[in-house]
Amino acid sequence: MSVGNAPVLAPRPHRPVPARRLSIVLTGTASDAHTWNLVFLQLLLEEAGHDVVNLGPCVPDEVVVASCVRRTPDLIVVSSVNGHGGTDGLRLIRVLREQRALADVPTIIGGKLGVAGHDAVGHTGRLLRAGFDVVFADDSRAVATLRQYVGVLCPGADR
């Protein structure tokens, strides 16, 4: 995870914390056809006791927005591994944050976000400034950090 300090992991204070389980929208980005990341994350989040709507791969921005506005989830999880996540994610978070109902919904992104491997072109900083709460790098700690983040967001979850 590229930004792993405690303040980033804390939920936004003005948002009520759900007692037992989070309603989560999980999605790929508009240009990303990969699905294994989404299948895995759905299982992981469901096992943690949460309700997950998996929008699947190649979801146009407007479909993500419409689904999220309809559901007003407690958490939006964006996963991308095709190398366009830095660009697609930036566009997506802007249209999500434009929606009043989604302005404060915790929204996180992770995966392989650029074509160059490491964060050589500063995707992480740009994505955070544009409104993502956390940007996860593709490394061995990502799953543990995601679990921890969701745990902080929802201390009353099943496990």
Binding site: A30, S31, D32, A33, C58, H84, T87
Partner: peptide, 15 residues
Amino acid sequence: DSYTRLGDYAAARAA
């Protein structure tokens, strides 16, 4: 590239 695959030629052109 993925934009062209999905028919988003405008995004491909912009990039």
